[in-house]
Design a binder for these strands. Sequence first.
DNA 1: TGTACATCAGTGAACGCGCGTTCACTGATGTAC
DNA 2: TGTACATCAGTGAACGCGCGTTCACTGATGTAC
Lengths: 190, 190
Amino acid sequence: MRKSKLEAAETRRHIVKTAAAEFRQHGINGTALADLMAASGLTHGGFYRHFTSKDQIVKEACALAVASEVEAAELAVLERAGQSGVAAFAKRYLTTQHRDHPAIGCPFAALASEIVRSDGDTRAVATEGFLKLVDVVTGQAGRSRPTAARRKAIVALSTMIGALTMSRLVDDAELSDTILEETGKHLARL
Amino acid sequence: MRKSKLEAAETRRHIVKTAAAEFRQHGINGTALADLMAASGLTHGGFYRHFTSKDQIVKEACALAVASEVEAAELAVLERAGQSGVAAFAKRYLTTQHRDHPAIGCPFAALASEIVRSDGDTRAVATEGFLKLVDVVTGQAGRSRPTAARRKAIVALSTMIGALTMSRLVDDAELSDTILEETGKHLARL
DNA sequence: TGTACATCAGTGAACGCGCGTTCACTGATGTAC
DNA sequence: TGTACATCAGTGAACGCGCGTTCACTGATGTAC
């Protein structure tokens, strides 16, 4: 049954991608390795041919999910029409579409409480991703002394993550919509 | 070993209070019932004399934690000095003190991702609590047509929750402080 | 280029531990008379 | 008010399931000669 190196690498990538979606959908704790492997079309025994532990795939799946969020921000910034980068990204971020599809959405909104309690590697990956998001929406890279634009972006991103999270937490469809709409309007004004 | 009704009720309250802290500190999934009972000074067997399931104490502990957050908001609003209720609460909320003591802090910031995946009762309790917070910081009750002040409060609270969550998630002490400070300044301006 | 052997991706069973839940038991409290 | 019995808070052991991890095995791939 051995697969070629190329196929194996492809399988590995596929598992990480599946994990990134499963974790965001069901939570890290809510996703058993057997479930994850089944969702990848494999049996659970093979997991350890690719990863040394659940912690490792958590880290890699977070890295992938964060990277795809950064890409989404890049896309939004490219397609902005007169608006600031932050406003352009916020417009795409604070939607019912995003709220209702956590599996392909922002990992911070989907997993924040779990990432806080994850190991150092995962938190480091998440922190880097957050800073990358800041860079992208401000259109300027560099960790040095935070400019006004950077500081604004940090606040706006925190706001977006909080609002999306609360729009999912809340039981009341109308309130959920209101949270998204009002936060969207608020950020558009900046 | 039987205890009097009064003592039993007191024990029950004590367990819920301990749970509210343990859940916020270690997460819901991260807190085993045996740990929780040990933290309450009891053995785990007695748990089911007071509660029918873990879900039930999750709900009650969330209700208590949310209620105590509402009280904190009431206090902040009472002691406000010229500022708006929202600004007064934000000032107390976005502190390193709060960030570093999740066990006695906001349950939304500590548990949002887990509450999203909790059962209906818990989400209902959380939703009610959030609306109560909105009422308190705006100084006006009632769920009817949201006024401008209510809409502002909803955005501000989402912002606060997102910022505190991210300040805990992030790996970098300086960035963490920046998130709190800048979000604080931002909300003070409203 | 072909052949023999080593490697290793993937399978499916098994292990072992943690955790939610149950249970027999104790002895103090509550209650019926 | 006192007595006998039922109740039940709390204990500690046990149960059973889920889940992360390991392992023997298969057979295709990779490699040494």
